[in-house]
Amino acid sequence: MLRPTTGELLRGVRLGLAEHVLPALPDGAAVRQLKASLHILRRIERSWDRLPAYLEADNMDISDTLGGLVAELAERGGGYPELSRRLASPPEPAPLPAGVCDARLARLMAVNGALQSALADFDRVWRADRELDPGARQAVAHRLHALHRRMLERAAVAAGTAHDD
């Protein structure tokens, strides 16, 4: 049961709507709604199967980079030890998110959500750490900037927007 693939089905639906339904509609709100739907279908068509690999790579990168930063700063106290504990413990099992049927995908999403949350909190902690010397601040900013760029590149590919304006 591999064919038609989800991408093939989405493409067929999109082309059918664009070629047969759209021309039959009078100008107005219905046309605008249909055009917006076609745009979304096109994006999903080129990205629908990329989410699991994206999440695996993103989780590994955030975990490694953030884990390294937190480990280096943990002895300073403040909010760092708490972040260290959070990174060491896996997220609690949660119900499947809306629109997700696969337990493994749900697990990857839960881990990604927890890592994103820890990364956001780390940003607040290090920016507020006014005793961090300028050289160390610059080093942290540099490593986070590089991580953010990698995250965005992966997210753009996964969402099918890598070549959008």
């Binding site: 979304i40 994006r43 965005l152 753009a156 304006d165």
Partner: peptide, 18 residues
């Protein structure tokens, strides 16, 4: 529906910032 997938535009905006 023009608003439904607006979150997909965020990546490009943030990439420009960085």
């Amino acid at each position: 529906l023009r608003l439904a997938d607006r979150a997909a535009t965020v990546t490009a905006a943030l990439t420009r910032c960085l």
